[in-house]
């Protein structure tokens, strides 16, 4: 199913958020666009975070709350003059509440081309045991 190929991408302004806590450093905060899907084994989260380096990304999972925070170092150096500015950069912040219990040991995060792929394996549930009743 590759029906997405022919479609033309539309411009979407980055979504700015009011950060939950007051910040010590000034700057804009954006919500990354995400895809979240789950299979029987795991929950996968994909997030668009252009400009984020692996070292600047902070993923935190505690009490079923998943928090993504990423800092972006500005791409241009200060002696460049702005001619046109259509987007702004700032840090990324987004928080989710997870319904499932996650196996914290095996969380895997990968960052490629500005896209984060986070795999959250579910804790294996006890396999249902079938009890056979023998008559005798």
């Amino acid at each position: 199913m590759n029906d997405t190929q022919s479609k033309e991408l539309k411009v979407r302004e980055k979504q700015e958020v009011a950060s939950p806590a007051e910040q010590t450093t000034p700057g804009l905060v954006f919500t990354p666009a995400v895809d979240i899907f789950e299979t029987e084994k795991e929950i996968t989260l994909l997030a668009d975070m252009p400009g984020v380096k692996a070292d600047d990304l902070n993923i935190d999972l505690r009490d079923n709350t998943l928090t993504l925070i990423a800092d972006v170092t500005p791409a241009d150096d200060s002696n460049e003059e702005v001619v046109l500015m259509e987007y702004e950069s700032g840090r990324y912040y987004r928080q989710f509440t997870l319904g499932e219990i996650i196996n914290q040991e095996n969380i895997d995060a990968k960052l490629t081309d500005g896209v984060l792929r986070l795999s959250l394996p579910k804790v294996e549930k006890a396999t249902p045991k079938k009890i056979t009743v023998t008559s005798g």
């Binding site: 997405t4 190929q5 022919s6 479609k7 033309e8 991408l9 539309k10 979407r12 666009a33 995400v34 895809d35 979240i36 899907f37 789950e38 994909l46 668009d48």
Partner: peptide, 10 residues
């Protein structure tokens, strides 16, 4: 899918 916000296209 729980969320699908990312888009593909040319």
């Amino acid at each position: 899918y729980h969320r699908k916000e990312r888009e593909a296209g040319s």
